[in-house]
């Protein structure tokens, strides 16, 4: 569906994008993560043929984004960061206008508009002026224009940006309905959103892809798994038992001999902790609770985007 190789984009002398290789399969849902200015929007704009690359080869649906931009744009639905709406237009007129610009034949336009109104739950406001709608509804209208041509690739740049919590839930529900049978790229600052939608996460930093993994792999791959223990016993006994895992680091130890909470970082790549349990059982320490919390994407994101990028880390 998408293939990008050796893509570089300069604004003046400033290199804003440097992607060695990126591929996306049909039906994949990919989350783009990165700080502001990381290059996410630039990459999305290149995928929509809105911006040219400085060099490199980018293909969407098999078409070159530079040489066959009209064909690319025919297969892409794009929701930009600022919802692209005309406040003076009526919702259904705007969708009809979008449909005609997206090469939908006049005869099929009413059916496609009705379908988009249905999918985005906009039937109740179809005859209203866009400028009079709430922000949540306006975002729905913007999403409706992006899907009006049944695009093979749907690109959503911060689709829940600036919405209130209820509107965010609404828009998330809507996006979940759209995912079927198409490749979706979502960029957002809300990490839980990525966890909710995406199968694969791309973390971009200073224009480079620094992480490209399936969501399930990402937390472990990014650093050590955490282990939480609640123990009853003396501190020296606990500390001596912990020494059987020299790679593990105690990140927190609170409480008293009756109930002591210990938080451990097991170390990169390590998942088992049998020897620690055996060591604890050999002492007078009682194990009250053992929990291995899944590291959150947020931790991974913060860990990966902190500090400078190393050369050659792009995927």
């Amino acid at each position: 569906m998408i293939s990008a190789h050796n893509v570089k984009k300069y604004f003046g002398n400033n290199k804003v994008l440097d992607i060695a290789s990126f591929e996306a399969r049909e039906g994949e849902i990919i989350g783009f993560l990165g700080l502001n200015g990381a290059g996410k929007t630039t990459f999305m704009r290149i995928l929509t043929s809105f911006l040219p690359t400085t060099c490199g080869d980018v293909r969407v649906c098999g078409y070159d984004v530079a040489k066959q931009s009209l064909l690319v744009r025919r297969h892409v639905g794009y929701l930009s960061e600022a919802p692209p709406l005309y406040p003076d237009m009526v919702v259904k007129d705007f969708l009809r206008f979008a449909a005609r610009l997206k090469d939908i034949p006049a005869r099929q336009t009413p059916a496609q508009v009705a379908k988009a109104l249905d999918l985005c739950n906009l039937n109740g406001v179809a005859s209203r002026v866009i400028g009079q709608l709430s922000k949540g509804y306006r975002q729905r209208v913007a999403i409706a224009q992006a899907i009006i041509n049944d695009p093979k690739l749907l690109i959503l740049d911060e689709p829940t940006n600036g919405l209130d919590p209820l509107q965010i839930l609404d828009v998330r529900k809507l996006i979940k309905n759209l995912e079927h049978k198409r490749t979706v790229i979502i960029s957002t600052h809300v990490l839980s959103e990525i966890e909710e939608f995406a199968q694969r996460v791309i973390i971009i930093k200073q224009g480079r892809i620094i992480k490209d993994h399936s969501l399930a792999e990402t937390p472990e791959a990014a650093g050590g798994a955490k282990l939480f223990l609640k123990l009853r016993g003396k501190r020296p006994d606990i500390e001596s038992a912990l020494r059987v895992m020299p790679d593990a680091a105690v990140t927190a130890m609170t409480g008293d001999d009756e109930a002591r909470a210990v938080e451990l970082d097991l170390g990169k790549g390590r998942e088992s902790y049998n020897e620690l349990i055996e060591a604890l059982l050999r002492t007078q320490v009682q194990i009250l609770e053992i929990r291995k919390p899944s590291p959150k994407l947020e931790d991974v994101f913060i860990r990966l985007t902190k500090g400078p990028t190393k050369e050659g880390q792009s995927v």
Partner: peptide, 14 residues
């Protein structure tokens, strides 16, 4: 100013 230029230029319109 309103961002609709990006919309127009990402549709298959010359």
């Amino acid at each position: 100013m309103s961002g609709t230029m990006e919309f127009l230029q990402t549709t298959p319109t010359r």
